[in-house]
Amino acid sequence: MRNRRLLTLILLSVLLVLSACGGTDSAAEDNSDEATESPKTGLNEITLDDMITKKDNDEAFYFLIYDAKQEYVKNTKLLEAYDKALKDKDMTAYHININALDDENKQKVDTLSEEYESHSGSYHNPFEDGGIAAVHHNKVDSAYEYWGEAWSLDMLIEEVNSADNTFLDNKFYNDVKKEVQKNIDYINEQEIDLTY
């Protein structure tokens, strides 16, 4: 009887020690939770549902949206260029590739695009043309729309890819930097407090 109790106590002790050491088995899991709470400076991936939740919760943030084949995104170094330009300005933005979404999420994008169209003059629709948008006050706004200009990042991605260039080349990187600056100017002009 005494041996049985001793063996039970030993087994319980071992189980307690193992459960205390357990935690997660992946540092990436821990970091992803932290990244969700406070994204890093530069470009951060986000799901469409998370973006919509942030918008509906009246959060304010930059959001890069584009519609391009993954191969084009990789070939053109699109994300690397935006990440670099954003970091140079100590700016944080989320990004989503519409092309990589399933049909259900593409329908959600269509709804967001219709909402956007209903309150804008349509110089630039980030859901149709691509580019950085400012999400604030439960809506999506385009700095290009605000400044009365047009911009088509999605067409530019195809152009850069077909010319075997990258967005890190001076000509195209300057376009990326201008877009980043237009969005900074828009946020400052509108006195919007970002809420990462």
Rank of each mutant, 00 (worst) to 15 (best):
K177S: 15
K55R: 12
Y144T: 05
H137A: 11
A150N: 10
Y196K: 11
L7I: 12
Q190D: 09
E45Q: 12
S38P: 01
A68S: 13
I96S: 08
S118P: 02
T24L: 11
E104C: 03
E80T: 13
S162I: 03
L101R: 05
T47G: 14
S120N: 11
L153C: 11
V73Q: 02
T111K: 12
Y62F: 15
N3F: 14
D169R: 00
E115G: 08
K108H: 02
L101Y: 00
N138W: 00
V140T: 15
N183G: 11
E149Y: 01
E29L: 14
D129P: 07
E29W: 09
I157T: 05
M51S: 08
Y123P: 14
I157P: 04
N138H: 08
N125K: 04
D164Q: 10
R2E: 10
E114L: 11
P126L: 02
E104N: 15
E179C: 06
K69W: 01
D103P: 15
E128R: 13
N44L: 05
D169T: 06
A133S: 15
E59L: 12
N170L: 07
D67Q: 05
S152P: 06
L64M: 06
T111S: 07
N31H: 06
A150Q: 01
D185C: 07
F63D: 11
L168D: 07
A68P: 10
D169W: 02
L7F: 01
E45D: 03
E179S: 13
G42Y: 03
M1W: 05
N165E: 04
N174E: 15
T195E: 12
E115M: 09
T111V: 13
Y66W: 02
S113Y: 02
D88S: 13
D193S: 14
V135Y: 01
I65K: 02
K182G: 05
G130T: 10
S142W: 06
Q107K: 09
D185N: 13
D164P: 03
Y186T: 02
I96N: 07
A68Q: 00
L48K: 00
A150S: 14
S142R: 06
F61C: 07
A20Q: 03
E145D: 15
L18V: 15
A85W: 03
K89S: 14
E34C: 10
I132A: 13
E114N: 08
D88P: 12
A134G: 07
Y123T: 06
Y116M: 13
N75L: 07
Y94N: 00
T76I: 02
S26K: 13
H124N: 15
Q181L: 09
E59G: 07
E29D: 13
Y62I: 00
Y173H: 09
D58Y: 08
T47C: 01
H136C: 02
C21G: 12
G22Q: 11
A134S: 09
K84M: 12
G121M: 14
T111E: 13
Y186G: 11
D185K: 13
F172P: 07
E189P: 08
D50N: 12
I46P: 00
D83T: 08
K77P: 01
V140R: 01
E158D: 09
A134D: 05
A28S: 10
E149F: 06
S32M: 09
R5S: 14
L156H: 03
N165K: 01
G23M: 08
K55H: 00
H119Y: 10
